[in-house]
Design a protein around this nucleic acid. Structure first.
Lengths: 230, 230
DNA sequence: CGACCATTTGATATGGATCAAGCGATGTGG
DNA sequence: CCACATCGCTTGATCCATATCAAATGGTCG
């Protein structure tokens, strides 16, 4: 299905300019001081694997630019996307000793790669680092809980929820540029691409959204969308 | 739907004998030393609320005897059960400042109630406590991930998974006594009671399980059940 | 321009929900 | 101790939301 390229170990120089727009988000993150200074920046191409499910979880990651998905596949190929990560987000916490999900770049992405052992060592000295680590894991848990609630809703509710969430995270405005494909959305929401597509056109017909292009979504009536989320 | 009784503040003396069988599980838990010594034992009757979604999360809980469910309801009444807890499990970690789920006793239950502030205070001195707190949260996260994967499977797969999980946790043998109703199972698996019931009878017909009574399940063919879990 | 890939749209199929009885166990009051 | 109400579970009949199968459209890149 998906093309898997091999892992590039060294940062390359391309589209740094495009990523620069996200720099401002860095300041907002809790682990701003010590931890991220330890990170080596690394670049991943579109659809490139960042880590694989069941690889040892030796690193944690902070996304600087681009978009990342984590996912898990059942033996028969069904894929569940666990989360989408945007610049400023940390990921790779979702694990014990091994990663339980895989991570891939959805767009070209720049990531700070941080040695887990270094963080835990730091945490054992610095209480605030330990607290931040806990807070991040708890936040991940909270995200998961919301996701769980999504999966018992109807298709309309899931899609509406998804659009509102993305608009929220992509910084509040009414126009969202989705970095991910319909297939990604479908695998996140537990639906099929056809259902995603149909639901979006329904929402467009009911004037809740507009679709200037397939990836660009304008929220025309947030209240209507919210009403769908029981 | 469910009867909500008021919260009993003081431990009562009944069925302590019945709970005693679970005592052996205590030793296996990571937070065995300092933390649980701080806990005040408390008893809850069947269907009694332990805490409510959106109450301040001032306590964490360790189940000593009985069974507990955590859940969340959508405005229209759909309920999603987040987890079942058995003796030895900790719960109430699934939160920021407020609980994001509610918790109720499924059977009469005995719970150690531990002040969160005390734990975090302890964690700031004792690194190992902080680590255990993180580990428990991470485990909760892992449980959630497995649950998420469940919800994209077919009814048969969900039910089979559930039975295997319960058998595993209720200490490995082939005969399981389910403490929860069909409705609880349904709301955990994102199905209806009718589908749960039908699926169980299917599994019985195919000789994968036996149903001596509706709450007692015998795993006759674990391999067959596992095969259903892609 | 032509090939390819993502998306949309249409027609049909189906798994699980919903609606509706029936049944068996448990408990309660007479 | 029995009649009867209640509750949890099972079973049957039908419906419907979403999946599946199939084709058309549109956008992108060489």
């Amino acid at each position: 299905m998906l093309t898997r390229t091999t892992l590039r170990k060294t940062p390359t120089g391309e589209d740094l300019a495009r990523d620069a727009q996200f720099g401002s988000r860095l300041a907002a993150n809790p682990l701003k001081g010590s931890i991220e200074l330890m990170g080596a920046p690394m670049r991943f191409a579109r659809n490139e694997e960042i880590y694989g499910e069941s690889e040892p979880a030796d690193y944690i990651y902070k996304l600087v630019g681009g978009t990342v998905r984590t996912y898990r596949v059942l033996s028969d190929g069904r894929r569940q996307i666990g989360a989408f990560y945007l610049p400023g987000d940390m990921f790779g916490l979702e694990c014990g000793a091994e990663h339980s999900f895989s991570a891939e770049a959805i767009t070209n992405a720049t990531v700070l790669v941080i040695k887990r052992s270094a963080v835990t060592a730091l945490a054992s000295h610095d209480v605030s680092v330990a607290q931040q680590l806990l807070a991040m894991t708890a936040q991940e848990l909270a995200r998961m809980q919301v996701h769980l609630m999504l999966l018992i809703k109807t298709a309309q509710e899931r899609v509406a929820d998804f659009l509102l969430e993305m608009a929220e995270r992509a910084d509040g405005h009414n126009e969202v540029d989705l970095p991910m494909s319909r297939q990604d959305i479908a695998d996140y929401l537990g639906l099929t691409i056809e259902t995603i597509s149909r639901t979006l056109t329904q929402l467009e017909s009911s004037a809740a959204i507009a679709l200037p292009t397939s990836r660009r979504i304008v929220l025309r009536n947030r209240a209507a969308l919210r009403q769908l989320n029981s």
